[in-house]
Every structure is written in C-alpha cells, then in structure tokens.
Nucleic acid binder design. Sequence first.
DNA 1: CGCCGTCTTGAGTAAGTTCAACACTAGTGG
DNA 2: CCACTAGTGTTGAACTTACTCAAGACGGCG
Lengths: 268, 268
Amino acid sequence: MTAARRWPGDNASATKIPNRSDLDRSALLGHPFVVRLKSYVDLTNADIDAIARSIERTLVVPKKNSVVLEGYQCATVHLVKQGFGIRYKVLPNGKRQILNVVLPGDVIGLPGALFNRALYTVASMTVMTLHTMSLDAFTQMARATPNVLLAMMWLAEHDLTMIGDHLIGIGRLTPLERVANFIFEMWIRLHSVGHAVGNSIELPISQHVIGDALGLSAPHVNRMLRRLKDLGLIAITQGSLFIKDAEELQLLGRYKSHVPARISFSRL
Amino acid sequence: MTAARRWPGDNASATKIPNRSDLDRSALLGHPFVVRLKSYVDLTNADIDAIARSIERTLVVPKKNSVVLEGYQCATVHLVKQGFGIRYKVLPNGKRQILNVVLPGDVIGLPGALFNRALYTVASMTVMTLHTMSLDAFTQMARATPNVLLAMMWLAEHDLTMIGDHLIGIGRLTPLERVANFIFEMWIRLHSVGHAVGNSIELPISQHVIGDALGLSAPHVNRMLRRLKDLGLIAITQGSLFIKDAEELQLLGRYKSHVPARISFSRL
DNA sequence: CGCCGTCTTGAGTAAGTTCAACACTAGTGG
DNA sequence: CCACTAGTGTTGAACTTACTCAAGACGGCG
C-alpha cells in the first residue's frame, strides 16, 4: 500500500454524459433496481410509474472514474443499471478501505444525500450506466408512494446486513476464508441480478482492490487465491473466474445467505 | 478466544417482565428514540402520538441476557430506552464478532423483522429498558405517518454509516487507533443522548468485549489501553473512563463525526 | 516496440495471537 | 462472616502470521 499512489477514481475530471431521460414503465420493468425492489415488496404499476417520473437523466460513467467524492455536496441519488463500482474511503495514513462492491440494482448516494455531504467515495471499475434522481424528487416520490419508501428502507436494511457480514468477515475470518467468502458473495449477488452464467463470473477487479476490500495486502490475496486454486475450489482464466466446488467454497467462506421476508402494506 | 466459552447472552432463560404499556405523548418527549428521530426530521405531535400508540409494552431485560437470538423468528421491534447492549454473531469456529454497541435511542430487531428471522444476536450488558412494537404495528404506523417512516429510513442510513466506519476501523486502523476510535465514539454517542457527564463516561464493558468488537484479543486490548493511559489520553478508575485529551484521542482514532442534514416533507 | 498496470514470488520483519499464570473484585452459599 | 467461585484485569514468553519491500514476469495498449 503506497501512500503516494493515486487511487482509481481520484481523477476527478470525469466526463459525464448527460442525457434527457425518457423512461416509461416498460423500460423500467427489467431494470435491476426495480427487480430488486420488487423482491422486497409488491410494487404496483403506479409505483413504478412514480419511479420512472422521478428519474431525471441517464448517466454513463467511464471506467475508473469517481461517481461521488467523499466530502463533497451530494444531493443526487443514483440507481445502478449496469457496471461495477466500489465504495471506499481513503484514510489519513494513505490506506484505503473498500466498504462494498457496487453492482447493478444498488443505490449510490443515499447516505450522502441524507447527510449533507458524501461520506464515502464511489468510483466505477467498469463503464457504468446510472439513472439519477435529485434528492427533492426522491423525497417527493417517497411521500407520494409509501410503498416505494418502505421498499427503500428495506433496501437500506439489506445493505446494512451486507456491510455487517463484511465486518464480521474482516474481524474474525482468516484471510483464506475472507477471499472464499468474497468470491462466493460476488457470485450470489451477480446471479441475483442475472449477471452470472452458471458457475462462471467476470470479475473486472484487481487483486489489489480485493485486498483493500478484505483488509489484506495484495501479495497475500494472491497467495490465498493460489491456495483456493490448489484446493480445487476455483479456476481463473483470463479475468473470468470459475467456481469448481461451490459447496466447499461456501463452507470455507462461512457464507450464509439471508432469506428475505416479503412485507407490504396490503397485508394489513 | 476459547471456543467452549459461553457468551454472555447465551443463557436464553431470560425472565422478561411484560407490562401493559400506558404511554402518552408527554412520556415519550424525553425518550432517547424520539430525541434521535427529531434530530433527523421534524416530527409533529400527531407523529409522536402515532409512535406512542404503536408501543405495546415495556420490557425490562436483566443484565447479560439475550434480547433477540440469531436465527429465531423475530417480529418485534424494540426501542431502547435505557441500558447497554451488543449486537453480535458467533462464527462456526467459536469466534465472536460484535457489530455494534446498542445504546439508548437505538432500535433492535429491525433487520430481523424485515428478514424473517434475526440475523444477529442482541444481548444486554446492563439492565435494559425497552419499548416493544409488533412488526404489524410498525408497518401500520409507517403507512399512516410517512414522516416517521422517513425518519426511520434516515436512522437505518445512520446505522449504516456507523457500521461502515466500524468496518473501516477494523480493516485499516492499527489496534491502538481502533481502541482510541472506539472510546471516542462511545463518548460522542453517549453524549448525544445525554448519558455522559463532561469528559467522563461509564463503560460497563469488559476488555474482552472490546476485543470482540475491534477484532483484537483481550490481552492486546489491555496493552493498548495501557498505552493510551501512558500517553496521557485517558484515565480509568473503577469502571468509569475519563478522557483527558479529547482532541488528541479523536485525532489518533481518526474519528470523524458526520453532520446530519435535516430533511422533511414540509420542505417541498 | 516500449510502457504501464497487474500478477507472482521470495526473504526478512514487525506485529498480534496464543497460552499460561497470577492478582483482584464481587457475588454466593454455607 | 468467611470461604469459594467466576469473571475480569494484567503480564510475560513463544510462536505464528501477514505485512513490507523488492524484483521479475506477463500481457495489453498506445
């Protein structure tokens, strides 16, 4: 971890490409964000329309660019349509900790919108397609459609559990277990939004980044990956990762999936 | 960390003392939970009445008892009125990771209510006074008073940032910094709900517990505490902790407070 | 072709764990 | 009232582990 190094995303000269958005309900139906919300609560067509109306524009962020910068004003909420990102923070001593990997269906900028400046930096790892919504539009939608607000709160709680599990991993798992856990989680999450085929996933993420996510040094991540390969659990070819023994990998990584409970106002 | 050890809170034979609750608005005004929500959004009297109506009973939990058990059904939301608790998880290898310390004003059981079983165990460290609300009552209140729902989402995001900071600490801070950070955070949080006098706080928490929170061994926590004492930053006498040099402690612990932004529907 | 980012490997070192033993305190039951 | 127990705080020594630093290989891209 070299302190002088410039992190990916530090080049704030991101050229963002704003478009007038012209989304209708049908365009949103396959959106990973809507898919995810629908897995939490039952959304009506009116709810989805409300989301569509609140979206102001579509943003395409080049790879290795920052989406939101820690400490800067942030009154925009971004819904991730495509691409990989990371949410991280750089400490005074130059070390970086990645809080979580941002995948399609995630929301960027919500905590930053509620506090009045962003708490963490979010940077793209690949090209990302985002749909943006101003904080005002978000709040307005929240008032009009409590269903969506409830789903958003659900989503916040889900994020909480993911960060909680991440915390547990860093605090009390061995490096080998952490790496196994990380790979398995990526696999599950990519599957849940339809971005994984079978046992194979694409991980456009350097070992250095994995290290910063898991609190390990890059060389050590390398050694642990090699160990997983030697154990016959995974195979790596050309940037894509193949899971050879999912069951054993899950066991080793102590991965436990959380079963969502569907709640809705209509139940009352 | 001995695997065979029984954690505080494992004695599930908690004798809980149910009372018919009879709370009105005035009784809630000084409640740390309401104080906290009001720091996020403007609550009307009607909002507070709605909270009061939703509370079903008052629960007094003896010290070192479990409030919710991981894996068990959990359709109740608890608002902490008094006392200390911890939210943790025990791993298959017998190690324990504490996610956060539960203080007055916190909510217990929300993620557990949204997933259909509790994800983590919450145990009391001291005697705790809780106000309980069924999940149904909570959802009903949420629909009727979007103001409160918005505040609850705010609270969820706030928890998210606290766990995020905890994650950063464990991942990338040195043990000494972690302990300094922990003490400072406790001080700030206790102050914010009026449970700290000046630079002195009561920490009814063993070093073993601190270790499980910070991912350290108990002996090492001890060494780090001694180091902080030797540095003249803190003093410990009889279970209460005195902060001698807050500024230096904050700096060492890399503690950064988050300034809340007040948002409300009425702004629209 | 040369460059840069990433992957890979090795050796030395600093760091924190583990294990074990003892002091001290408070609570408990005889 | 006292002995006993359990939990906690404290310290030391040996050991393991992962980091740091450094150097080289590989591969894509200008």
